[in-house]
Design a binder for these strands. Structure first.
Lengths: 205, 205
DNA sequence: GCCATATACTGAACAGTGTTCAGCATAGTG
DNA sequence: CACTATGCTGAACACTGTTCAGTATATGGC
């Protein structure tokens, strides 16, 4: 005994190696273009070995999506302990989300666009995904409590805001041929539009 | 001569048959799950025949995306000849877009989500896609001319609005596991938020 | 030390994919 | 009737995700 634990640790090690290789390849070449054999080649194991650690190719993608969600959650969570005004925290949250997507375009596409289209990967979205959404919801609730918003329904408002920033983030990443106006101007406009759109009427600033 | 034209018409006929079969299958089973052989089986030709009419599988998708854009453009264009107030026309345009997506979810995913991720299908978006965007831009310009909006930049505002409604449409279609609030409430909230967000301050109604 | 067992891994095989192309009928022309 | 051009075939190629009988290695008991 003791050796059993070492074996388990080594097994976990190879699992991580597979994830590392897959992450690198997925981000560089896209989920579709990366075959199990390519991953196996990179870690210098036989293709079959991968199936001793993951049920199928989609499960590898699932794990990587979880990682991405976790990173996003860390960034969004940092805003909670911020002493700024509720609406400013909300604005910061929206910006943080958009920039996270633009700084990790391939991860973003993988997690928020490709994953859903590909398999019915509900699990990731119903756990880690909801948690990420919770961060935004928290900021919205703060603004509601301060009496700054038009509605008391935090879910309705947070979902609206999320749909808006997700839309902008995904088109900026995927519609590369589209003649967008300058990117920062568009981001500013979107954040401004969304926040003004959900703000209670007759408030200054 | 004359027969040459008949031949050409018959050739065009088979091209349409391929498109019909592909459209049906793509919408029912998704682009990925439909193989060239499945399409060939449906029209009872050999797989190789399809390559006499289309360069590759992606070109078939391209043509179907074009159709979808054209249908959307027809719907959006109908609003132009509307005598309603500029802001109401704008609201109608946003709603029309969202409903078009929700009524043709598989077409929408195919055209606006999957197509871009899959191949670098710039052509469709830079021609027909831009034209569809032009409808929205037209409504925005109308509202600008009426002095109803916060900015004079029709492109900036139209792109913001489009990103917003595209975001909502695509998450409503793809995030089936997500606990959304009632759909119509969310659509109302999004349209309201976007329009209020781009409206000039201090205007009544 | 030696054998039995359990574990980790292999790589050939299967059914499928998009795509190509030599060859074959058939219809139209001189 | 011969010849050519057209439309179509289906076998073949190189790939895909996935499975599984077999092998090599390391562990535990005697």
């Amino acid at each position: 005994m003791g050796s059993k634990q070492r074996r388990a640790r080594e097994k976990e090690g190879l699992r991580e190696e597979i994830l590392d290789a897959a992450r690198t390849l997925f981000v560089k070449e896209g989920y579709e273009s990366v075959s199990i054999r390519k991953i196996a080649d990179k870690i210098e194991y036989a293709p079959g070995t991968i199936y001793l650690y993951f049920r199928d190719k989609a499960e590898i993608l699932d794990r990587i999506c979880e990682e991405t969600f976790a990173r996003l959650i860390r960034k969004m969570d940092a805003i909670k302990n911020d002493t700024a005004a509720p609406l400013d925290k909300l604005r910061r949250g929206l910006r943080t989300y958009i920039h996270f997507g633009l700084e990790n375009p391939n991860h973003y596409v993988l997690t928020f666009i490709q994953a859903k289209v590909h398999h019915e990967s509900k699990s990731v979205f119903e756990t880690t995904g909801l948690q990420a959404f919770g961060c935004l919801r928290h900021a919205v609730q703060g603004a509601i409590d301060a009496g700054e918003l038009v509605s008391n329904d935090a879910d309705e408002l947070a979902q609206t805001l999320w749909a808006g920033i997700h839309g902008l983030t995904s088109v900026l990443i995927t519609c590369t041929g589209f003649p967008f106006v300058e990117q920062n101007r568009l981001i500013d406009r979107m954040v401004h539009t969304l926040v003004e759109g959900v703000r209670a009427k007759g408030n200054k600033s």
